[in-house]
Design a protein around this nucleic acid. Structure first.
Lengths: 184, 184
DNA sequence: GTCTATAGAATGATAGAC
DNA sequence: GTCTATCATTCTATAGAC
């Protein structure tokens, strides 16, 4: 008869495990240890390991997009904050949970795979919406490329601890819209 | 008393598995099935699963760098061929085995981790050497950023099958050196 | 070098008491 | 909602015959 573990805490710890160890490398036992439960008890909260993936990515998308300034006002402020949030997370954690899951989920876990696709599509669309408010040309394409460049920079953080490629990607992102016609 | 399985074939199949399923997700059983052996027989060729990682990455580096034109002659030809090889592999396979391993190996497999670091350092250095022959300024930094951008583009191939971000990354890479002072 | 046999551990998941 | 107990499966790896 003790306090139930908050669902939010389970999802947060699952995110840490997925980011560091990937879908296959993260185990329900490790997750249970982190939140102070027996592995079996996790199944009263989530029906399967796979079901953790949509929860983790929904939380992450929410963390990333919450309380952004209205792009219709100052679109640059919204863009700066969004890029800053993504980059800060990559810098603090050294990698992206979404990318690790994108590579790690297979056709055998279709719900997880769909969740990954939805996560990146929504993040890209949020970015594109801001660029669109700034009348940047081809906002979806530019948003897609920008996210790819930020994600790619995590390679060097993981392997070498080198933050420079990420900072360069951020600089390029923040230049977008400066002079139309050649944003990158 | 049958023909021994060529070591090259084992490494090639291991690469496919690591690329698709990552280090944890690839099993010795799957690898054995692919090459027509019993799982136990793999251990006469490789002492452990971890030891496959250096072999896979050494082969990949070799495949990528073999027979490149001498940058001292036509550095642009060498650069074009190298970028083209990387991009073609990503397009054909949908992802990068090095990136999956970079995210997937942990401190528990230090030899594998070292192999990943070495792999990307050598690939970057090969790229930087070509740019240096072209007298591109800050060749190491530009090579590092370029590789990050190519890797990042695989996110969209994996999740959406979208090749456009990769093609954009290639276009940016091939513009390097066109007008000095702002290669990206 | 490949095989059969097997060990020992870890995995995701279920049943039922409290 | 958490627990104890348990399951079937999968995993990496070793021993020894051929």
């Amino acid at each position: 008869m003790r306090e139930p573990v908050p669902i939010h805490q389970i999802v947060v710890e699952a995110r840490e495990l997925f980011r560091e160890y990937g879908y296959e490398g993260a185990s329900m036992r490790d997750l249970a240890d982190r939140v102070g439960l027996r592995p079996q008890s996790l199944y009263t909260r989530f029906p399967s390991k796979e079901s953790l993936v949509p929860a983790v990515l929904a939380l992450t998308l929410d963390d990333t997009l919450v309380d952004l300034p209205d792009p219709a006002g100052d679109w640059r402020a919204a863009w700066r904050m969004l890029i800053g949030r993504i980059a800060e997370t990559f810098e603090a954690r050294g990698r992206c949970v979404g990318l690790h899951l994108a590579y790690g989920v297979t056709a055998q876990t279709p719900d997880a795979r769909d969740a990954v696709r939805t996560f990146f599509a929504r993040l890209r669309d949020a970015m594109a919406g801001i660029l669109d408010a700034g009348e940047v040309s081809e906002p979806v394409s530019v948003a897609t490329d920008t996210l790819a460049q930020l994600e790619g920079a995590t390679l060097w953080i993981t392997t070498e601890g080198d933050m420079e490629p990420l900072r360069h990607a951020v600089e390029r992102a923040l230049c977008i819209g400066d002079r139309e016609g050649r944003p990158l």
